[in-house]
Design a protein around this nucleic acid. Sequence first.
DNA 1: TCAGCGGGCAACTGTTTGGTTGCCTTTCTG
DNA 2: CAGAAAGGCAACCAAACAGTTGCCCGCTGA
Lengths: 99, 99
Amino acid sequence: MPLFAALGDETRLALVLRLGSGGPRSIAQLAAESPYTRQAITKHLEVLSAAGLVRSDRRGRERIWNVEADRLAAARKYLEQVSLQWEATLGRLKQFVEE
Amino acid sequence: MPLFAALGDETRLALVLRLGSGGPRSIAQLAAESPYTRQAITKHLEVLSAAGLVRSDRRGRERIWNVEADRLAAARKYLEQVSLQWEATLGRLKQFVEE
DNA sequence: TCAGCGGGCAACTGTTTGGTTGCCTTTCTG
DNA sequence: CAGAAAGGCAACCAAACAGTTGCCCGCTGA
């Protein structure tokens, strides 16, 4: 799951959060707000983009990045699925123990 | 967020899923079902444990690992929170554009 | 029109990490 | 009690990764 791997990095998670709460921004802007180089930001954005969490639009010489809401919803659904499965298993185990 | 990092690894995710759907198991058992060494499994379990996703119980010479449902629920809640925030921002942006 | 800003490309570095092997301790069992 | 099974500890390796620097290219606007 490249999605979790993408969110697993501290810097990347911060990037996504700030992009989501502050609206679309350019690489330079994001880099200015972060302790890291523009290049580092670019690399992280690429990883996030590969995970489908983020998308870029060209605007003149700028590249504007925004957040992709659907993918996060998918992650949520996935976790929900897994935890449902867990509960089913726990239920079965409990039943088994009680028999 | 070490939790996402923990789930980000393919092997670890598989471990969690199989532990969750197959019930608690020992390291040796998990290793036997996986293409990796017992040591590799141990390391992964430690990472998962540090993320709070998994817990171990000693039983004689064995160490039985089981899944910790609460933590996954927390992750779900977190993603929910984030996506709500995103939707709020998108709403504001939309309103801003339409004005 | 040209200075400067935004960004892409590539090479390099140090650290983390996924995985292995080897050896030792503890516990179970015939 | 001896041997086997389960696991812990530590050293080691290769690959991946986060981040940097340097250079170059294409827009943009005074």
